[in-house]
């Protein structure tokens, strides 16, 4: 399989998105992708850092990249698109010598950030590819109609992320098709969920995430797949708040794409953290169990 990857989990994956981390590790292990945690990794800086000081934000991200490069890794992957954006922004800004100098003062070491950084989704699509993934899938996802929600950052800013069509990405849709599921014609693939506005202006998140849920329901999906921990939190953990705001009830489960992939790879539900959701994931499992029973797999 592919060479070892430096793995940068990101803070969310140790707390609110533990199931994203669990399922990512489980899938990669099954697929033979070796993940080596970045030693002594720290926060990427996230929104508070870049909203305060660009050099400080870059230094926080650069520290992690440097730690990874110290291990000799030339490839790094993170499940979180927001972390990836922070890492790539630091890489891009440090191409300016003046900026790099400011970062190096904060960092206390050279900020040469030549390591290749990608999302887990990008790594799976590029290094393994759909065919290899489908080959490893022992249980089809037949019966699922998946709305794939990529969020703002997976494909944008275009120049920095350089992944798929910025307005109509299809990586997850193609993945689920390859795994035997249906891809729902979901309209708001790259709309914003409200992101961190949940803290200062909760109504904005409830409005925006409400739209996304409504569009997913309209597309006839029976599961919403995501690739971002903050998107998942807004759509899953804030479900009751959204329902209170919009007056529309929705039981649509919100799963990380790695959880669905894990199910197809034959991994047990506990290993994928399917019990860690606010909105129950049972309907998804029920559909799949019926499929598997009829096809005599799993």
């Amino acid at each position: 399989m592919s060479a070892a990857l430096a793995y940068y989990p990101g803070c969310s994956q140790t707390a609110s998105a533990r199931e994203y981390d669990l399922s990512t590790r489980a899938c990669c292990q099954t697929l033979g992708v070796e993940l080596n945690d970045v030693p002594d990794w720290t926060c990427c800086g996230s929104t508070p850092a870049h909203a305060t000081d660009h050099a400080l934000a870059a230094a926080l991200a650069a520290r992690n990249l440097a730690q990874a490069m110290d291990t000799g890794a030339s490839n790094l992957a993170t499940p979180c698109p927001s972390c990836l954006l922070a890492l790539r922004t630091a890489q891009s800004r440090c191409e300016n010598e003046g900026f790099k100098g400011r970062v190096e003062v904060l960092l206390g070491r050279p900020a040469t950030l030549s390591i290749r950084t990608r999302s887990i989704l990008q790594v799976l699509m590029e290094d393994l590819g759909l065919e290899a993934l489908a080959e490893k899938a022992v249980r089809p996802l037949k019966g699922l109609r998946v709305a794939s929600y990529y969020g703002c950052l997976m494909t944008r800013p275009v120049g920095l992320m350089a992944f798929e069509d910025p307005d109509n990405p299809t990586a997850m849709d193609r993945l689920f098709l390859a795994l035997g599921a249906e891809a729902a014609p979901f309209a708001l693939k790259t709309e914003c969920c409200g992101a961190a506005l949940g803290v200062p202006r909760k109504e904005a998140v409830l409005e925006l995430s409400g739209r996304i849920l409504a569009a997913a329901e309209e597309s006839g999906a029976n599961v919403l797949a995501v690739a971002c921990p903050l998107c998942q939190m807004n759509l899953d953990l804030r479900r009751e708040q959204i329902e209170g705001y919009t007056g529309q009830r929705s039981t649509l489960p919100v799963l990380y794409f790695t959880q669905l992939l894990g199910l197809a790879l034959g991994l047990p539900e506990e290993a994928l953290g399917l019990g860690l959701h606010n909105v129950g994931t049972r309907p998804v499992l029920d559909i799949l169990r019926r499929t598997w029973a009829s096809e005599d797999v799993g």
């Binding site: 307005d167 014609p185 309209a187 708001l188 709309e191 569009a215 309209e218």
Partner: peptide, 11 residues
């Protein structure tokens, strides 16, 4: 910013 299908029409 975007055009998307909604309730059988385009938003």
């Amino acid at each position: 910013s975007s055009v998307y299908p909604k309730n059988g029409r385009l938003a």
